Simulated assay, not measured.
Amino acid sequence: MPSLQLDIHSELLPPEKQALARAMSEEYSRIMGSDPKLMTIVIRNLPNGSIWHCTDDEPVPGTLLMCDVRVGRDRATRHRLADRLIDLITARTGVGREDIKVEFTQHTGDEMFHPFLGGFNRDWDESEASADP
């Protein structure tokens, strides 16, 4: 953890996805106080007509960013992260800001297994934010 999953109706080439994933990882690590080695980012290009944002009228094409994170960050921190990730996505894909939805699911550290850590992660705490990754 964290795991970020971006479902987007824009066509991004692998180098564009890699650059976006790196930028998202850097911002996540900076804002959330986490080691970038813990990150997994999935970017899925969905065919036109595959993802919809429902409105009072007809559904419109949408973009969804799911953020599975360790519990412990306050609402303001998650808000800053959502705003910055939306900025990155709009700048690199042309998707409109209002077309992006960000959802957070918070987990304890023992809900994510990292072989390179030797097992389960630990719970996040503020001391991690001040440590050099």
Rank of each mutant, 00 (worst) to 15 (best):
M24E: 05
L88N: 03
D68N: 14
K17W: 04
Y28W: 14
S10R: 14
N121E: 05
E111L: 11
A91S: 14
L65T: 03
A91T: 13
R70V: 06
A129E: 12
D57R: 08
R22K: 10
L85R: 00
D125R: 06
D57C: 04
T108A: 13
E126A: 13
S34W: 09
E16G: 03
A19M: 03
D110R: 12
A21E: 10
G119V: 07
P14C: 11
G96R: 15
F113L: 15
G49F: 15
F104L: 07
E16D: 04
N48P: 04
I100V: 03
S25H: 08
F113K: 01
P115H: 14
W124F: 08
L88Q: 06
R84K: 13
D125M: 02
E58Q: 09
M1V: 03
D68E: 15
G33I: 02
I43S: 00
D83V: 12
T40W: 13
T105C: 11
G94V: 04
M32L: 05
H9K: 09
G119Y: 09
E58P: 00
D110S: 14
P14L: 13
G119Q: 08
R97E: 09
F113M: 12
R84C: 01
R97Y: 07
I41R: 07
L46P: 00
T40G: 03
M39E: 10
Y28A: 01
S127E: 13
S3W: 11
T63K: 02
M39F: 12
G119F: 10
R73I: 06
H107D: 07
P2V: 05
R44H: 14
E58Y: 14
R22T: 03
F113G: 02
L81M: 15
S25A: 05
N45Q: 07
D35P: 04
L20D: 02
V71C: 06
L85N: 01
E16Y: 04
L13C: 10
D87A: 09
C54I: 06
T40S: 06
L13I: 15
S34N: 09
S29N: 03
V71R: 07
I43A: 00
G119C: 07
C67S: 08
D7R: 05
D87W: 11
S130R: 14
S130Q: 15
T90C: 06
E27C: 08
T93K: 00
K101V: 12
G33E: 12
E11Y: 11
R75F: 14
I86S: 00
D125C: 02
F116E: 06
T108F: 10
L12F: 15
N48D: 14
N48E: 15
E126H: 09
M112D: 06
Q18K: 11
I100A: 00
R70G: 00
R44V: 10
R97F: 12
I100H: 01
R92L: 07
D68W: 11
E26T: 11
D56C: 11
I51N: 12
S127R: 14
E16A: 05
I51F: 11
R70M: 10
I31M: 01
D68S: 13
E11P: 02
P61A: 03
D74G: 06
W124R: 04
I41P: 04
V60P: 01
E16I: 01
E98I: 06
R122W: 04
L88G: 01
I51L: 10
G49E: 05
P133I: 04
P59T: 08
D110C: 05
R30C: 03
I89D: 08
S25F: 15
